[in-house]
């Protein structure tokens, strides 16, 4: 973690307290998680209690306090995906990656999360890896998807 980076993000919002969530989002984007030191720095420089920063960091789903993998796999469990068998797709990912939903692999290559609706319901079931969306996924297609990112 680099303190100058955090300062740069903080400067963008000019100490505006209502931008706390946006600041955390920028940090999350930069590091793929919220490093504790970063939260301490935000608390100090913004002059808000650390408890308040942490309450935001733990309330919203977009934030993670643990590092995420290089490829973050989001398996959509929205309603359309659910009725088209997304649960089985998630389980296949869990088996193939050896991870439970919410975990990150030790080599920091993959993290696996079940998410609520990516808004691509027309292509259910849907899996998003990084920025890429894969539609009409079946348990049988999971191995192929993982292979694509493993290299």
């Amino acid at each position: 973690m680099n303190h100058a980076n955090i300062t740069e993000i903080l400067n963008k919002y000019q100490g505006d307290e209502s931008s706390l969530i946006a600041i955390l989002q920028d940090i999350q984007e930069e590091y793929s998680y919220l490093p504790r030191e970063a939260l301490v720095q935000v608390s100090k420089e913004m002059n808000v209690p650390l408890s308040r920063v942490l309450s935001l960091a733990t309330f919203f789903r977009a934030f993670s306090l643990k590092p995420k993998g290089k490829h973050s796999v989001h398996v959509c469990l929205g309603t359309a995906c659910h009725v088209r068998g997304a649960q089985r797709v998630l389980e296949k990912f869990e088996r193939e990656l050896g991870l439970k939903s919410g975990e990150t692999s030790e080599d920091l290559l993959f993290s696996l999360d079940a998410v609520r609706c990516l808004g691509c319901c027309g292509l259910a079931p849907v899996v998003q890896v990084g920025e890429e969306v894969h539609g009409k996924i079946t348990p049988a297609k999971v191995t192929g998807v993982i292979k694509k990112y493993r290299k």
């Binding site: 931008s19 706390l20 969530i21 946006a22 935001l56 309330f59 919203f60 789903r61 977009a62």
Partner: peptide, 25 residues
Amino acid sequence: IVRGAGAFVCGEETALIASVEGRLG
């Protein structure tokens, strides 16, 4: 533009307002 941070309850207007203000949704 304000980016949501992933909380379904923020679709509720008073929760949404709280999160625009930078508070818990």
